[in-house]
Amino acid sequence: HNLTITQGKLFFHYNPKLCLSEIHKMEEVSGTKGRQERNDIALKTNGDQASCENELLKFSYIRTSFDKILLRWEPYWPPDFRDLLGFMLFYKEAPYQNVTEFDGQDACGSNSWTVVDIDPPLRSNDPKSQNHPGWLMRGLKPWTQYAIFVKTLVTFSDERRTYGAKSDIIYVQTDATNPSVPLDPISVSNSSSQIILKWKPPSDPNGNITHYLVFWERQAEDSELFELDYCLKGLKLPSRTWSPPFESEDSQKHNQSEYEDSAGECCSCPKTDSQILKELEESSFRKTFEDYLHNVVFVPRKTSSGTGAEDPRPSRKRRSLGDVGNVTVAVPTVAAFPNTSSTSVPTSPEEHRPFEKVVNKESLVISGLRHFTGYRIELQACNQDTPEERCSVAAYVSARTMPEAKADDIVGPVTHEIFENNVVHLMWQEPKEPNGLIVLYEVSYRRYGDEELHLCVSRKHFALERGCRLRGLSPGNYSVRIRATSLAGNGSWTEPTYFYVTDYLDVPSNIA
């Protein structure tokens, strides 16, 4: 807008934040220059609390790290170098490059900038070799853009010569660093050979998330399962459950009422301010606690030095998902009996873990797994792929695949051998790939016309006998059925096997 004052003059007093240069501009645009008398524009009460600059400061050096910015700028000295009290560095987070010096300023003089007072450097006698002032900004957020400017702080001049310097606002972004852990990993099994893994992005990506790394490792069953005799009275049979499938998407929606109208769909109840505040506090606490764990609990591995020492970490090797089922080394339970199943799973520490690289999504279907087997899954978020990966501390989750139908069934015939004193040795093959492992066998036998009897055969007993022995049988026709019990439950009964026990007292003698 054009402003013209045809008559009258300007009068400025007691404006401590208004620089004289701005008042002189007002004289020019209003056409009143030359009308004012000496005392109409006070030299001592206008701009006496402001830094009124008329020179431009330029930054000469900028260096960044993930949490620091090192700045240096060209030296500046007023005509009387004693008038320079120091520099004021202003900075704040700036997602967009549209910041002005006066953003967030209120009537009390406060604003949204963080201000650092910096002492002037030592003055050199040689004007050509003056030290460049600077400042190291610490405690910054990774991968965050900051708006920065600097200006001088000078003393009051009796001659009211307006001098000083100020830089333009520059924008500097800190470097990326390792992201925080992925949030809320959930693993479920939808079949006997697959596990579905879902997660949420890290709360602090500290860069642009480029991919996720998912490692999985087959877990050995508890050692007590191999040692305890679950045929003993009072000892509860062990059981394991597989990871249940995901709930429906509708039930997972946030901010939804727990109660549904019987007449149909209901609208979600909005969260109160107290609920939102509580969630923010919980989120802040979780982030602080995660940072504490990362800094205190997890110790970084030592990389190899120039002395030739090897990095103890196993090298990563990509495998196809079809090879995942046989990740671990199978060892027989008892070496003397080769027909026992290889369900003991000690994992070799030198073995390469299978892994998958996930790009542009937060889910993965891990296939080719062994049925009813526990897996430990390790999830890392990465925001750099080359020249070397920059990934987060791992988040861990466990899951067990679903049982395989008929995996616990005894394959092959049940054979028998009759000894003296009416002892019958029953023999059968253990299931080759049971659900988890076989903890015991149930032997059901009966003599024709009598009630059915049951015998429990422990895992250890089966390994020693290759089956079991029935003792003290009365003469007669017998039928026997056997079924295995694994961590997933009972298998199917075998087809009945028949044998006849004679009275050993009636056996004919070869003595003449």
Rank of each mutant, 00 (worst) to 15 (best):
R459G: 04
K460C: 14
C266G: 03
R218K: 08
P245V: 12
S203R: 07
Y448G: 00
S479M: 04
V501H: 05
L487W: 14
W493F: 08
G476N: 01
H454D: 14
P338C: 08
H416P: 05
N422A: 15
S474M: 09
P205K: 02
L228E: 14
G476V: 01
P314Q: 06
K361C: 07
P270I: 05
D408A: 04
E451M: 14
L437G: 10
R390Q: 13
R319H: 12
S284C: 03
S367A: 12
T303S: 08
D385P: 11
E247R: 10
E282R: 04
K233L: 12
T373R: 04
K460G: 07
G264P: 06
D291P: 02
V457W: 08
S251T: 09
D503L: 04
L369I: 04
Y292H: 04
P245N: 08
R400L: 05
P238Y: 06
K271F: 06
Y504V: 05
L440T: 03
N435T: 00
S398P: 08
R471D: 04
H461T: 11
N255L: 04
I276H: 10
G374V: 04
N421D: 15
M427P: 01
S274F: 10
R318S: 08
R400E: 09
V397H: 15
E258S: 10
F226T: 04
S392D: 00
C269Y: 03
A484Q: 04
Y441M: 02
G491F: 03
T494S: 04
P349R: 15
E221R: 15
F499V: 12
L505P: 11
G467R: 10
K271P: 04
V365I: 01
E249Q: 14
E404Q: 14
G325E: 09
K287H: 02
S486W: 01
E430H: 05
V214P: 00
S342H: 11
M402W: 05
F285L: 04
T401A: 09
T340W: 14
E420W: 15
S458W: 05
N422Q: 07
L464N: 09
N422R: 09
V397R: 14
V329G: 06
S315I: 10
R316Q: 14
L213T: 04
T494G: 02
N206L: 01
P270D: 03
E420K: 12
T415S: 11
G368F: 14
S274R: 11
W216C: 11
T307R: 13
S486N: 02
L321Y: 08
V296P: 01
I209V: 06
G308F: 10
V214G: 11
T340Q: 08
H371N: 08
A395R: 05
G234S: 12
N326Q: 09
V457K: 06
G306R: 12
Y396G: 06
L232T: 07
A309V: 11
F355L: 11
D291A: 02
I209P: 02
V358L: 10
E362M: 09
V443N: 01
P496C: 09
D291K: 01
N295G: 09
S458R: 09
G449W: 01
T303D: 15
M427Y: 11
F462D: 03
E442S: 06
V457L: 15
N326L: 10
Y478A: 01
A263M: 13
E442A: 10
V327A: 10
G449D: 07
F355G: 12
Q275I: 03
L369A: 10
L487P: 07
L455A: 09
T303Q: 08
G325S: 10
V297D: 02
T288M: 13
L364G: 15
Q256R: 07
G368K: 12
L237C: 06
R390P: 11
H454S: 02
S320C: 08
L379P: 02
T303A: 10
Y212I: 11
A407W: 06
F355A: 08
E281D: 11
Y448D: 10
V457N: 04
G412S: 15
I482E: 00
A394H: 09
P245K: 07
V414A: 07
S398D: 04
P349T: 14
P245W: 09
P496R: 13
T494W: 01
L379M: 08
E221V: 11
D222Y: 04
N360G: 06
V214K: 00
G234C: 08
S248T: 13
Q275Y: 04
G472M: 05
N422I: 08
N383H: 05
K361Y: 12
S344Y: 09
S248H: 07
N422F: 03
P312F: 07
D250S: 09
A407S: 09
R466L: 10
F226S: 05
P496I: 13
R447G: 02
P314I: 02
G264H: 13
C456E: 01
V480T: 12
R301E: 10
E217S: 12
G476P: 00
T485F: 07
V501M: 14
A395L: 10
C231R: 01
Q384P: 02
W428V: 01
V299Q: 14
E351R: 14
V507Y: 04
W242V: 12
F285K: 02
A263C: 09
R483T: 02
E433M: 05
A394P: 08
S458F: 07
P312M: 09
N360P: 07
V414M: 07
E260Y: 15
F215W: 04
R471T: 08
S239A: 07
L440S: 03
D250W: 14
Y259K: 10
L464D: 07
W242G: 09
S203A: 10
N477A: 11
V443E: 00
E417Y: 06
R313P: 12
V414P: 10
E221Q: 04
S239K: 15
K278P: 02
E227F: 14
K357W: 03
A407C: 01
D506M: 08
S363F: 04
E356N: 14
Y500K: 09
L232P: 08
T502P: 13
F289S: 02
T288R: 07
